[in-house]
């Protein structure tokens, strides 16, 4: 099995994660329904001729990607793979609303062109003149994980040595309010704010001193709470691990009724482990697991855990293996194992 080493990790999120020197982020106020990203100065990364057509998500994605390449000292990746659950919802809404408002007349092409899900991957390629493998996954909360699986597979096939992988989501202006409305209509709904962001990684099959390795990743479309416990046992044993060897487990809790999936796992297999969460600092969105991976990478690199992330049990150094488990509404489960 080839390694999958994180040579750089960059995140634009509701926290000051893009420029931060410290990652000791604070919990988002849960009175806020939508947590917009803290945006870097995009002019530093995107020429005006290109940025004039870009909506928020494309700007975030292209910028995070560019910075990730810079940090990894890489000019051209051998593949560009992105994930986005809602895609370019901002331009989708814009085009849809002009269809409705103008009764299909006087429509301009830009929002349509920029609304396709592959716009971020395409704009990154265009900016780099990168003709390599290019793919985009749009499978809800598994969009980013699918991109990672594709990347790991390319390493395995010797088709690539360095791959740019990222997840991106923008809040948009309208559709998110309908989703929020449905969430808040039930007291079983999501309790953290809805968020947005872009997290990009340069992954490499070549080890680098101190680089974090993505050991394994598995996705499961549909499973019961008990299935998840059984599947996690198999996942650990496939990786020659027992739960004691997991230095921290990061859960995707968002406060809705499906948190029982995490609680069930926490109280059975990981009772004694350091248990962490991240959606209280990032908000919830389809590709938020990319932010989860970003934070996990920082934790391993810096051997520090932001106190806002700690759910239960303090931690002991050295932190070596971190496990991430995420699901959304009781489906689209993902396990990720990373280590340093």
């Amino acid at each position: 099995m080839k390694g999958c080493y994180i040579h750089s990790a960059v995140s634009i999120s509701a926290q000051d994660s893009f420029d931060a020197k410290s990652f000791d982020f604070k919990i988002l106020e849960n009175t806020v329904e939508k947590a917009t990203a803290i945006h870097p100065n995009y002019r530093d990364f995107i020429p005006p001729a290109a940025s004039r057509r870009m909506a928020t998500g494309v700007k975030m994605g292209v910028t995070a990607a560019k910075r990730a390449l810079q940090l990894a000292n890489l000019e051209q990746p051998d593949a560009i793979i992105t994930g986005s659950g809602m895609g370019c919802i901002e331009d989708t809404e814009k085009f849809l609303n002009s269809i409705i408002a103008n009764n299909e007349e006087f429509l301009t092409p830009t929002p349509f062109i920029q609304s396709t899900h592959n716009t971020v991957g395409a704009q990154i390629a265009l900016g780099l003149k990168c003709k390599a493998y290019n793919n985009t996954f749009v499978h809800g909360s598994l969009s980013f994980e699918s991109a990672l699986i594709d990347a790991k597979q390319l390493f395995q096939e010797n088709e690539a040595q360095n791959i740019l992988v990222g997840g991106v989501e923008e809040l948009g202006k309208e559709f998110v309010d309908y989703v929020l409305m449905m969430e808040t209509s039930s007291n079983q709904g999501i309790k953290v704010p809805f968020g947005e962001g872009a997290s990009f990684f340069v992954l490499s099959s070549e080890p680098k001193l101190g680089a974090v390795n993505i050991h394994d990743i598995e996705t499961i479309s549909l499973a019961s709470e008990n299935d998840i416990i059984e599947r996690m046992k198999v996942f650990l044993s496939n990786n020659n691990l027992t739960s004691e060897k997991v230095d921290a487990i990061i859960f995707g809790n968002n406060g809705d009724s499906f948190d029982s999936y995490y609680n069930n796992l926490a109280s059975t297999l990981f009772e004694e482990n350091t248990q962490l969460q991240y959606k209280n600092i990032s908000g919830e969105f389809y590709t938020v697991s990319a932010f989860g991976l970003f934070m996990a990478t920082k934790i391993l690199e810096e051997q520090k855990i932001p106190s806002a992330m700690l759910i239960k049990n303090s931690f002991k150094k050295p932190l070596k293996n971190i496990l991430l488990y995420n699901q959304f509404k009781g489906r689209n489960h993902s396990f990720m194992l990373i280590s340093k």
Partner: peptide, 18 residues
């Protein structure tokens, strides 16, 4: 997801949009 559920496919399921 709907196709997967109807066919009983529960593990690796994903969507591509290029």
């Amino acid at each position: 997801q709907k196709i997967a559920d109807a066919l009983g496919i529960t593990d690796f399921v994903t969507t591509i949009s290029t």
